[in-house]
Structures are given as structure tokens and as C-alpha cells.
Design a protein around this nucleic acid. Structure first.
Lengths: 111, 111
DNA sequence: CTGAATCCTCTCCGATACTG
DNA sequence: CAGTATCGGAGAGGATTCAG
């Protein structure tokens, strides 16, 4: 299970799954939507997701070349779970930051 | 959000939250329950979780010393989400492994 | 446009040893 | 029992370059 968790817990994988959950994306679209991700990392992330059967890659033989990424049924089932995680993160971000500042303040006093 | 996700997506944090969701644990109990985690990593993980207000650390001034870890209300709210993630991982592990073998087989044929 | 390959840096993490 | 400090190897990941 550690293996599976480390895959789906990866930051870029989470972002990719969330974006692809909304709709299909092309490579460059994903890159723009995911903040500062290098082409290298995006490529590796997508390849791993494809290997794990979560994402399907469709190549259109046009000029210029175009590739579309979409979630498989398995990927969509993950999307639901990941979305819950994302919501939790958004909802509780301020609580976490507050706790962090409180903690850091106490540590500073203790020194 | 990337920051929060990388924290709660961390493998050891997930394990710790899942164990602490069942009941309070002492340091050594966590270490035994989490498979092969070094004292160093466990210590760092717990400290981060405490800093983020997800875990509360209680020291009993006995001989030998004893420390108990428990989830805060915020930590318990995370536990529900994380548990869903864990279930997904368990339920779909075989599908992922199958997809992986299929993918690797195709790559091998292509070469 | 979509990648693969190379290089190089920087962080993570395990092993070990030491403290209260 | 419950940690902290230090070191060293391994891997992640960014920048850049090249190819189809």
C-alpha cells in the first residue's frame, strides 16, 4: 500500500488528476494549469499515471503534433477521492497556518 | 495548496494519521505499527504533524519516560479523508498492478 | 507542440551514535 | 523509552538542449 500511496500522493499527480477530472487536457494546457511544473516532471508524471492505468494518452497525427490526456474509469474513481482531499486542504489551510504560527511562536519563546 | 498537499500526502504522515485514528499511540508503538520507519523519520513526521495542529503530544514525566500521541479535532477531520484514500489504494491495488504489467509488456514488445 | 536525454544541484532519508 | 546530531549515499527534480 505504501507503494500505491506514494504514487497517488505525489503532488504533481494530484494536480494532474484534479485537472483531468474537469475535462481532457493537452500537454501544454496541463503545464499552464499546474503552476510551475517543468516539462520533465510533467512528462514523467503523466507516463507514470498512464502506466498505472489512470490516464489514457491519445496522439493526433497532425501538424503540429497534438496529444490529449484523459482519465480512465479507474482514474475517475481516484478523482473523487482526491477531490475530497483537495477540498480538505483548501478548507483547512488557514487552520494549519494558524497552528504553525502558534507553534513557531512557542518554540521561539522556549529558546 | 501544494504545500498542504505535500504535507498530508506524505507517506509516513498518512500512516501515522491512520494509526492514530484508531487510538492513541506511544512513540514505539507507532514505530512498530508503521513498518520500516526510522526513528528519525518518525520523529520528524510527528513534529511536523504537531506543528500543523493535527497531532497533540503528551509527555508523562515517569521513569522511563513515556510520550503519547493523539489526533486533535483537526487531525480527526483529516483522518476521515485519509481513510477514504487508503481504502481506494487497497481496493485498486490489483488493478494498478495489472495495468502496470500490461504497460510494461507493451513497451517490451515495442522495443 | 510534445516529448526524450543530459547534466548538475539539492534535498531527503537511513544508519549510527549519543543524551536525558 | 524517546528522542537529537551528524554524516554520506541515492534519488528527485530544474534547466537546457535536441528530435520528431
Amino acid at each position: 500500500m505504501a507503494d500505491v500511496l506514494s504514487r497517488i500522493g505525489d503532488k504533481w499527480s494530484v494536480f494532474a488528476v484534479m485537472l483531468l477530472g474537469e475535462r481532457d487536457h493537452r500537454f501544454a494546457e496541463l503545464q499552464r494549469g499546474m503552476g510551475a511544473v517543468s516539462k520533465r516532471m510533467l512528462s514523467l508524471t503523466l507516463k507514470r499515471l498512464e502506466r498505472d492505468g489512470l490516464v489514457i494518452r491519445t496522439v493526433f497525427d497532425t501538424v503540429p503534433p497534438s496529444v490529449s490526456y484523459a482519465l480512465t474509469p479507474l482514474g475517475r474513481s481516484l478523482h473523487g477521492v482526491v477531490e475530497a482531499l483537495g477540498h480538505w486542504a483548501v478548507d483547512n489551510q488557514s487552520s494549519i497556518e494558524a497552528a504553525r504560527q502558534r507553534f513557531d511562536g512557542e518554540v521561539a519563546l522556549g529558546e
